[in-house]
Design a protein around this nucleic acid. Structure first.
Length: 580
DNA sequence: CTGATTAAGTCAGCTGGCTCTAC
DNA sequence: CGTAGAGCCAGCTGACTTAATCA
């Protein structure tokens, strides 16, 4: 892992304490954006080749068994595996799948198989279910063997050497072929994600390293030596035509330093945020429409932690929006609502098609501006027609070096955690306090999750436990009372001791009860909120580390193993006085 | 009580979605 | 100025771990 020494020095190697690269490079006048000097790795791991189905597992078309060619069969299995998923009920999914599947068929198959609804994949589906069942039923030894093999692959392909350090790679496995599962109403859902071949792969490593070998009989698309980027392997994916990468794990120096830098930028924003707020408030009255729009959008980004909202190509992606791409249909204005003035009601699909719904009271000037922006527009028109993310970020860049829309999200998330931790720490359980502070951030950032499938049941189980514990407590109290009465009449050592043990029992049970009740509260409040995302991506870990140290809470209560690895730099350097 | 089985809970990996900038 | 490339952010899921229950 890496140690954090001082804010100008980056991360030092924890083992050899060598100078961080940024400093070494500065000394050598290498401030040209290089990310590394030496990089060696073994290349990606490919998924296993397709194994044709045994003959007994049949596919039926129009009620008649039909043996498919290997190519068509493989694509059919992708669909068969998803049969009990909601996806397969969606028209777009079925249409896209069928179209791409037909491309893989022989001309004979193509002429026979003309309708998806006449296809029967159930035997294939059952076969895969049985397979996964069999995997679960494997003996201990077999499971152990698989585990060891995975470990061997991890050791060989899961690490690279970057500038004399062995670093963990994030995803060293190539994504297997399958059907594309977009999120929300994605126009491309169900399309075939094709198998990636070595000929599609670009390898990036240093010239003087041992280059990874392509599998026997194949060759890479290209081997390049670009130290201005951090990726090791890339390929172009066939659904959106975008590039996919293999990069390092978050515990690596290169990711850690970037993460740390992100929070330092957010802390710089903290110093001038009041000035920026004063300015955008001033800009609400600008003569120029574009400046008013910019100022109102920035207000939303700051107050509501909205994302920037880039334009997206219609028809290629799901219809989701962020701040700059909000449309008239996503906003409603209420001069008065629920006893509040100037209420803005926002309702739109955000990233991952997660719904953002919020009613917020705004200043009169914001409200009047919004009314103005909405004048003479249709539902599908842009709310901010004179603004986009590029204009907004250009403006922000002028206000502070490195300032972009997303910095506000990082800043507001982290500062909220810090404030909430200060306010909430008095309550009964420290961990509950922390989770509540974390939750406040998750709500701000709209990090939602589907309620866990087992939520109702587990809540019910917990309630049963609480009820039992309550009964236990009242029984214990009764016993204590009786013991006290005994002690009063008998006045001997034995009955005195009995009183003490009963007292202890009551105390122990009531503590257990309290713990259970805290757990229930925490779980209930967390039903639809995902804490992980903000914890991992928006909250300066030094705030949490300082809080733990100050209250004597072991860091393990807040961060699990992976999180501790990712935040090793913060855990190492932060003292209890750290202020974000 | 003890070890096995099962249920519940947690976490790491997966892969798609988005921001932002350099060309 | 538009677009491709790079890299950060996102929720879901299946595998693993831990706790509970059973024999």
């Amino acid at each position: 892992s890496y140690k954090y020494r001082n804010k100008n020095a980056g991360l030092f190697c924890n083992v050899c304490l060598c100078l961080p690269l940024c400093l070494r490079w500065e000394e050598e006048k290498c401030t040209d954006g290089s990310k590394w000097r030496f990089l060696e790795h073994k290349g990606p791991v490919f998924p296993p080749p397709y194994e044709p189905l045994p003959d007994r597992v049949r596919f039926y078309y129009d009620g008649k068994a039909m043996k498919l060619s290997p190519g068509a069969e493989e694509v059919a299995t992708f669909y068969a595996k998803m049969l009990d998923h909601e996806y397969t009920t969606k028209d777009i999914f079925r249409k896209n799948f069928f179209k791409d599947w037909r491309k893989e068929m022989t001309s004979e198959e193509k002429s026979k198989i003309t309708e998806l609804k006449k296809c029967d994949f159930t035997e294939m589906h059952e076969y895969f279910k049985a397979q996964s069942e069999a995997r679960k039923q494997m003996s201990k030894e077999e499971k152990q063997k698989i585990k060891e093999e995975n470990e061997r692959i991890l050791q060989e392909y899961g690490y690279c050497v970057m500038d004399n350090h062995r670093e963990r790679i994030g995803n060293f496995r190539i994504e297997p072929p399958g059907l594309f599962r977009g999120r929300g109403d994605h126009p491309k859902m169900g399309k075939l994600k094709r198998r990636i071949r070595p000929e599609d792969i670009i390898i990036n490593c240093s010239k003087d390293s041992v280059h990874p070998k392509a599998p026997p009989g194949t060759r890479w698309k290209e081997v390049r030596h670009d130290n201005k980027v951090t990726w090791l392997v890339s390929w172009t994916e066939n659904i959106q035509g975008s590039i996919k990468y293999i990069m390092l794990n978050p515990s690596s120096r290169i990711k850690g330093e970037k993460d740390w830098q992100k929070y330092e930028t957010a802390r710089r924003l903290k110093k001038i945020v009041e000035r920026i707020r004063a300015q955008y408030r001033e800009d609400w009255r600008s003569k120029e429409m574009r400046i008013r729009q910019r100022a109102v959008a920035l207000y939303f980004i700051d107050k509501l932690a909205l994302r920037a909202g880039n334009e997206k190509d219609e028809g290629e992606t799901a219809d989701t929006v962020g701040c700059c791409s909000l449309r008239v249909e996503h906003i409603r204005l209420h001069p008065q609502m629920d006893g509040q003035d100037y209420v803005v009601e926002l309702d739109f699909p955000g990233k991952d098609s997660i719904r953002y719904y919020n009613k917020v009271s705004v200043e009169k000037r914001v409200f009047k501006n919004l009314q103005l922006f909405l004048e003479n527009k249709q539902a599908k028109d842009d709310l901010f027609d004179r603004l986009n993310t590029s204009i907004l970020n250009k403006h922000l860049q002028e206000l502070m070096d490195g300032l972009t829309a997303k910095v506000f999200r990082t800043y507001n998330a982290s500062i909220t955690l810090q404030q909430q931790l200060k306010e909430l720490t008095s309550c009964e359980s420290k961990i509950l306090s922390y989770n509540r502070a974390n939750r406040a951030v998750a709500v701000l950032c709209n990090h939602q999750r589907a309620p866990p499938k087992t939520f109702e049941k587990s809540m019910h189980n917990l309630q049963t436990k609480i009820d039992e514990k309550k009964k236990q407590l009242s029984a214990a109290k009764k016993e204590l009372k009786a013991a006290k009465a005994d002690a009063k009449t008998l006045r001997d050592e034995k009955s005195k001791r009995a009183v003490e043990t009963k007292k202890k029992a009551v105390q122990r049970i009531s503590e257990q009860l309290m713990k259970l009740e805290v757990q229930a509260t925490d779980r209930e409040e967390n039903k639809q909120i995902a804490l992980g995302t903000s914890k991992l991506n928006y909250l300066d870990p030094r705030i949490s580390v300082a809080w733990c140290k100050k209250l004597g809470v072991p860091i393990e209560k807040i961060y699990n193993k992976t999180q501790r690895e990712k935040f090793a730099w913060a855990i190492d350097m932060t003292d209890e006085d750290f202020e974000f």
